[in-house]
């Protein structure tokens, strides 16, 4: 474990908590893409199948459980409890256009052709594009609530910090996983224009409005 990965994990946890609290406190999931939340749940389910078979550390197991419970809880809030506030008219990204190619790619490019490894690879590839429905929804509505932009900033920062962690681990342990690194770079690049808007607008107290 290194500080970059720890801060990255905490940033990821913060993002998930921010979103959960936003939906719970305002009792509304306006402006939030349920499709992205479904994809994130799928990412955690396919990645953490080894939760009970492969113990790494208490921290690792506890975080996996928290991610699984909170992401599924968010999907539950969005599609059941506060379904009336779910903005399905703007959450129209076709996630099959993500899941199918990612599924195919995980069969073609992986470290080991075993079910667990292919599912892990699937989850890594899927996570890199899972935010697209959310970014697409914001581009359609043309704006995002400030709390949602904080959520996105924390979520985007997590994988950016993981990239720093991979550089650090490469130089200190000689460890690197090309699949995770490439997917992590793609994932972080997708946030770039949002990061620019967040830093130039939201941090100056303005509303996040995408150029129409």
């Amino acid at each position: 474990m290194n500080v970059f990965r720890l801060v990255g994990d905490l940033s990821h946890l913060l993002a998930i908590i921010i979103l959960l609290l936003k939906i719970w406190k305002t009792r509304s999931c306006a402006g939030v893409s349920g499709k992205s939340q479904i994809l994130f749940s799928l990412v955690f389910i396919t990645r953490y199948l080894d939760l009970f078979t492969n113990f790494i550390s208490v921290y690792n197991s506890v975080m996996k459980i928290i991610y699984l419970v909170t992401s599924l809880g968010t999907v539950y809030l969005m599609y059941f409890k506060f379904k009336a506030t779910y903005d399905s008219n703007h959450d129209t990204f076709r996630i099959e256009f993500l899941v199918v190619p990612v599924g195919g790619l995980s069969f073609l490019v992986n470290h080991d052709f075993t079910p667990l490894e292919i599912l892990w690879t699937f989850s890594i590839y899927l996570e890199s594009v899972a935010i697209l429905p959310q970014l697409f929804m914001i581009s359609k509505t043309g704006e995002a609530e400030t709390i949602t932009s904080h959520y996105l900033f924390a979520l985007g920062s997590y994988r950016a910090l993981y990239i720093v962690n991979w550089v650090y681990r490469y130089y200190t342990e000689g460890f690197f996983d090309l699949i995770a690194i490439v997917a992590g770079c793609v994932q972080t690049i997708l946030y770039c224009d949002f990061f620019y808007l967040y830093i130039t607008k939201v941090l100056k107290g303005k509303q996040l409005k995408l150029p129409a």
Partner: peptide, 10 residues
């Protein structure tokens, strides 16, 4: 590269 198979990252 180091063939590290232990998935110790989240």
């Amino acid at each position: 590269n180091v063939e590290v198979k232990v998935k110790d990252e989240l």
